[in-house]
């Protein structure tokens, strides 16, 4: 599968794929403080967009605006437009629960529910009524865990608590849980930052496979990771989107000197 990726020819992908999500002058405020100063970026269908930048640059904040997870923070306010298939997701008529079913999220720290592996996976499908019969649920669990590359490791202990897995397994369980809802977009907020290198490699492989069926936006601290998994990369700095473009270009020939400074390690 690795050889079918378009890492070497990123521009081709972006050109052929329709725009899945689009941010237009997105500004985010925490109380009086402005965390994002007007971000414009498109995310294309079936691509992996990586967001990099020094900590506190607003990349996680931006990611969380994409499925309105910022709604849970009282003082947070979002201006501008974010379109999902051309619809503004901040439109009051649009339903946030439905939005999150379409735009799933995987968090920095693995957060399996204190339930069995099986129940973790069917949690979303049950909520959204994606299945009703036991065999349907069984099928969803098997498929989702297979897609998350966890099936072989856990198929004999599906009814043991998900919190008993190792860190890497937990994170893959969380990915399986997100995948089970059949979202259109999956947002990943530094999904590997709490994991060891082997588990990280596992997840990175997985991301590449998931791209076949989903659109993925991933925030990462790790520039090598961005280079490995993404087709396009966006560089954030102090609440600004400095530049976005094919990953190859950003890493080899950045246009902005701030980007250059960051990827050459002058700060970060």
């Amino acid at each position: 599968m690795m050889d079918t990726t378009t890492m070497t020819m990123p521009t081709e992908t972006t050109a052929t794929q329709p725009v899945k999500m689009s941010a237009k002058t997105v500004k985010v405020f925490y109380g009086e403080k402005r965390a994002l100063h007007g971000v414009n970026v498109d995310i294309y269908q079936n691509e992996v967009l990586a967001m990099i930048g020094p900590s506190g640059c607003g990349k996680s904040t931006f990611l969380r605006t994409l499925n309105r997870m910022n709604d849970t923070i009282d003082i947070c306010r979002v201006e501008g437009q974010i379109l999902l298939d051309g619809e503004d997701i901040y439109d009051p008529r649009l339903d946030v629960v439905q939005l999150r079913a379409r735009v799933g999220m995987v968090f920095q720290k693995p957060n399996p529910f204190p339930k069995s592996i099986y129940e973790n996976v069917i949690y979303g499908p049950k909520l959204h009524g994606l299945a009703t019969r036991k065999d349907e649920f069984d099928a969803i669990v098997e498929q989702s865990l297979k897609r998350a590359g966890l099936w072989n490791e856990v198929k004999d202990r599906l009814h043991e608590p998900g919190t008993g897995l190792s860190g890497g397994q937990q994170q893959r369980l969380c990915i399986a849980r997100a995948v089970a809802v059949s979202p259109e977009v999956i947002l990943m907020d530094e999904p590997c930052s709490a994991l060891d290198p082997i588990a990280t490699a596992h997840i990175e492989e997985l991301i590449d496979e998931l791209r076949e069926s989903f659109t993925i936006a991933i925030v990462t601290h790790n520039m090598q990771q961005a280079a490995r998994v993404s087709q396009r990369t966006a560089f954030f700095h102090l609440g600004d989107l400095v530049e976005v473009g094919p990953t190859e270009e950003i890493f080899t020939n950045p246009r902005d000197e701030r980007t250059q400074g960051y990827i050459t390690g002058r700060y970060g």
Partner: peptide, 23 residues
Amino acid sequence: SLRDGSLGLGATRSETIKQVVLP
């Protein structure tokens, strides 16, 4: 993080409370 995980899957608040927080 557990609440976020549930809300991120498209659960409503009450679903999150009843099925994740309370258990």
